[in-house]
């Protein structure tokens, strides 16, 4: 008995060593470009491309941060972006779960058809629908407001998120909702009290993805917002990207770095909710 457990722990140790080696290897690959971004943000343009590459800057140029942040009104842009991101993230999580619940749990006439439509919306390249869509928003008097950036989040939160939630709702055991129904809960109560808590890890996924996506989204604000004071941070970053070939790489990395850090911190903090979500999820034992 004791030898068996011994060999088992030895075996475990080997397994875990292998796991950690793989993880560390992948982690280095993941972190490296980020690390490079940090060091480049302190380098002069010439040093950023010097060969052989310097690991750490020879001369630490803090001016990249100062000059980079002067390229646009980043204070104002940050406020705009934070507000937009919060609204969009909350709206996306709630509305996509809501719609997905309908798709997953209520077999109705036409549900297959609508589901196919849902999937199809992801497949048409956005570039050709851009102009007709813009025309509609213009007719609704929504150009140069945040509405075109928020409406997709409120109304379904995007096919991707609906699809994701639907997959998870489908994989939830049937007993879960049935038990709630027997208790006399209506479908909406089942949704809020049984379904949403059971897919908490998914909600975290969707929330974080929507946060990151909205934070980095450059395309939609650029197309729909005309007034400079309503711009977002990602547009500001583009003011450092010269199309004439003289991009100041150090400044660009400095601003990109500042843009990344808040998202990173939020993501890291969210970890504990992931864990909590998992603890709460599903039926235990």
């Amino acid at each position: 008995m004791s030898t068996k457990t011994k060999s088992k722990t030895a075996h475990n140790r080997i397994v875990y060593t292998i796991i950690y080696i793989i993880l560390i290897f992948c982690a280095v690959l993941c972190v490296f470009p980020f690390f490079w971004m940090i060091t480049t943000s302190f380098k002069s343009t010439a040093e950023a491309y010097s060969f052989p590459p310097t690991i750490l800057p020879k001369r630490w140029l803090f001016s990249n941060f100062v000059n980079g942040l002067q390229a646009a009104d980043f204070g104002r842009f940050t406020v705009n972006t934070v507000l937009l991101v919060i609204v969009n993230t909350v709206a996306t999580v709630l509305s996509s779960a809501f719609v997905a619940y309908g798709f997953a749990k209520f077999p109705a006439k036409g549900s297959k058809f609508w589901y196919t439509c849902l999937m199809a919306t992801m497949m048409l390249p956005g570039q050709v629908t851009l102009i007709p869509q813009y025309l509609l928003y213009y007719k609704f008097h929504m150009v140069d407001t945040y509405w075109p950036l928020i409406i997709p989040s409120i109304l379904g939160g995007g096919a991707y998120n609906i699809f994701l939630y639907r997959q998870f709702f489908l994989s939830l055991p049937k007993e879960l909702s049935e038990a709630a129904m027997i208790d006399g809960a209506n479908s909406f109560q089942t949704f809020t009290h049984v379904m949403l808590p059971s897919v908490k890890p998914v909600s975290m996924c969707v929330g974080v993805m929507s946060l990151v996506w909205n934070w980095n989204d450059f395309y939609n604000p650029l197309i729909y917002i005309n007034t400079t004071s309503k711009f977002t941070v990602s547009i500001g970053l583009q003011f450092l990207n010269s199309s004439m070939g003289t991009t100041k790489i150090g400044q660009m990395m400095a601003v990109a770095l500042i843009m990344t850090i808040p998202v990173m911190v939020i993501f890291f903090i969210c970890q504990k909710y992931f864990v909590e979500g998992i603890k709460m999820s599903g039926i235990k034992g």
Partner: peptide, 14 residues
């Protein structure tokens, strides 16, 4: 809130 925040500024413009 999202609507107000933006339409406050944009209502006139649009």
């Amino acid at each position: 809130a999202a609507g107000c925040g933006t339409s406050g500024a944009s209502g006139n413009a649009s």
